[in-house]
Amino acid sequence: MKNQQEEVSLGMLPGQLEPVRVGRRLFLRYAGAFAAGGAVLASCKNGEENPTTVMAPVDLGTGDVGILNYAYALEQLEAAFYTQVIATPYSGMTDAEKTLLTDIRNHEIIHREFFKAALGANAIAGLTPNFTAITFTDRASVLNTAKAFEDLGVSAYNGAGSLIKDVNYLALAGKIVSVEARHAAAIRDLLSPKSADFAGDDVVAPATGLDKASAPSVVLPIAQTFVKTQITATNLPK
């Protein structure tokens, strides 16, 4: 990376238009590393990181443990995001917004630590986020990412409920998913106050009044774009 100062951003947020600038030689090096290690390639923003670092993939596991690790992975992502949001507030963040986003950060950290404690020795390792697609100084970038994360979380828990075997774990997932839905509505209300967006037709089907429910196979590729650590989920219940 000595002479390469260009930003490499291979994991893009869907809909984000940040240009990807990758030199051909560097691309080939990355491509080689990817083929060799199957690693998720992340940004080398400061030009000092070792581009050939290959992180060990993390497998979520099987059965209810797999589903809990799936939730733990998503909560890790959300908690890391909001921690950064509060550490480096976007320009023009109002006191009310800071209070709201701090509340959400705390909830997500509690969720993350809860899953880690509940999983004990079965917990996956801590994931390394990749937030290069997010401009933390920009309100629209932060809040639209928050909206995407919360909606994703809601659809993930809704889709995972039927994969859970233990009724106690199902109850816990139920206690968390509605908190994520409350977050989603509040974030959507910040972006478009008093509009229909808090439960917009883009997430709640108008004909049935049903929120989205998505399988892990749909959710994880989206989450993966924000996580450097490669997550594998081939053993999850289906």
Binding site: V179, A181, H183, A185, A199, V204, L210, D211
Partner: peptide
Amino acid sequence: TTALQIHSVEARHASEVRRILGLKG
């Protein structure tokens, strides 16, 4: 699954109504 999909919609509603009331979501 259907019940969960209704459940989260009710939670979105609850959050929004609370915000109109000046409460936290």
